[in-house]
Design a protein around this nucleic acid. Sequence first.
DNA 1: TGCAAATGCTTTTTT
DNA 2: AGCATTTGCA
Length: 723
Amino acid sequence: MKLNHLNEMQKQAVIHTEGPLLILAGAGSGKTRVLTHRIAYLVEEQDVSPYEILAITFTNKAAKEMRERVEALIGGHPRGMWISTFHSACVRILRNDIDKIGYAKNFVIYDTSDQLVVMKEVLKQLDYNDKIFPPKSMLSRIGSLKDELIGVKDFSDRSKGNFRDERIALVYEKYQNKLKANNALDFDDLIMRAVQLLMANPTELSFYQQKFKYILVDEFQDTNYAQYKLASMLASKHKNLCVVGDDDQSIYGWRGADVGNILGFEQEFPNTKVIKLEQNYRSTKKILDAANGVVANNKSRKKKKLFTDNNEGEDLQYFCAGNAYGEAEHVAKTIVGLMDSENKKLSDFAVLYRTNAQSRVFEEIFNKANIKYRLYGGTPFYGRKEIKDVMAYLRIIENTADQVSLGRVINVPKRGIGLKSIEKILEYAEMNESTFFDALIDVHHIGSLSGSAKAKICNFAELIISLIEKKADMSVTEIVEYIYEKTKYIDILEKEKTVEAQSRIENLQEFLSLTVDFDDNSEIKTLEEFLVTTSLQTSLDTEEDGENAVTLMTLHSAKGLEFPVVFLPGMEESIFPSHMAIKEGNEEEERRLCYVGITRAMSKLYLSHATQRTIYGRVCYNSISRFINEIPDELIARDTKYNRKKAVRKTTTSPLFRGEMLEAKKEKITYDSSQVIRTGSKVIHPTFGIGTVITFKDDMASIAFEGKGIKKISTSFVKLTVC
DNA sequence: TGCAAATGCTTTTTT
DNA sequence: AGCATTTGCA
């Protein structure tokens, strides 16, 4: 196997196969290449069986990519090798042996919205006020407990004496019991339960320890305690644990990721070999220097400095726009310009923003400018109501204990089973200590229900039963078609004749093409398998390859990707760094996020800032981001009259600081001065559309909009286009 | 039961 | 602003 296209450090990382290995891989230093070569090297040169290798990533996409690259290197299918995410590896372990910790093997996986349903029920039953115990924050608290492998018992013990925590411990207990009764696990359970299973069952643990002679973990800086524990447990026999990560790219601390796992790795694993990959192959010198300059401001980090043999490159471009629209227009113009002058393709560009809300303006402007884009994130396909409904039917068929799903669709589409009827069924179930589903079947014995209610419930129960009977000899597609047919879901939507209903129908049809794809291509074609893969899938996984479009995504989703030209808009205090981060003192993580953003760029980087921006419907005047000022001055070309010293002084905690407001207002008027608004002018308003100016004094205009009435508009706050 | 109106949120979100 | 959820009323 040829390794001569690897640099010295990369080569060492590939051939050092025995014992713990920590690879500190800077951005763009070729870590995926190292990982894949390492796996290929083990198989080809060291005669390691693929069966003995476990490679863990965080995303399905990364796992898929790694698998493909390994296949390309060894020229074939690595049979028996586990290349998977933490979660799917855990599902695999749990599927085999979860009965040993009191679950049934056909468990379902609950997503965030399912969790919320369960949590609300818990709080209701405990009679806790959901203002004092908000369901969402209860879930996030419990989530972090699970990330740290703190079970119900542990937490209840350690919260003694703390009034609030004692109560939360009850919530936790009840929540876990409910999940178990539904034979369901949430995402955090997947990891925690897998660890619990292995800890409680030495036979199973030693089976996996024996099996996995070589373990690799990618993005190690993003592991939480539970994931770390899982990896180290599995590796404790052979001690061939190779972890790859970059503490400077740790951006998921808020989700329980612990940089300590990477920083303390050498202490935890004696005789760890440490290899640093510091040569960057991605970016120009100037881009890299900018990234280094920013991240150097962080106090807690392993000292390192990326270098590159790449060209010096161009200056970074900085632009100060009047508002978010001006900012997006500038980006659009730059894209069009570069396509023209440098033959760039749409897919060469990425716009990376801090919050999803920022995408809207870009979408609007790109649509106007006829720039094709691909938006990542947002509501995932599987999160759509209609899709969740179909999935709920499927989940019930697989696991009738799943009350959340039953509750979800018992009256969807509407079949006249109301809340009161459901309560009566629940009562009956509780009295007889049966499941909700069994109560449905027994519906005739529920005296409190009216005859018509009984009939409706009976119909529903029969539908489910017929589905269960048929599932064995039907493909997933056939089952779904059967559900559509029997529930008349699509027919009912068609009668609505609304745009939403139409898009729901399209989604339901799209869902069928997913099931067809599954039926054709999946190795295991059971409904159970379909449910697992879909539960663990996200919007990021559905890629249309070869698509020529500009990428729009958050900085978080951009990790691991690269683009020739990158735009970082919204470089403003309280956007980036976000006001939450400033308030909670998480500045360093934001800075790392900025580092991630800058290092996505290969040859061109554009940063921008808008003096005025509407956030949550309020107009804000944010000062320029501290991160801009941390980029060495000589690397940036400033396409503006903006004065750096002034901005540094201007930085305040409140975005609505008075002085800034006045200053910004002045600037804004200059921005719009090319337009002449007078009585009778036809103007275009970004939200109201076309209108006619009735009166205009100072900067206030009364404008009549077609079908929207007369609005008073401040022309210095809203960008009006005169036509 | 079903709807419209009122209210409440809102950083990031690999699974 | 935009969205989702809850509330209040017919």
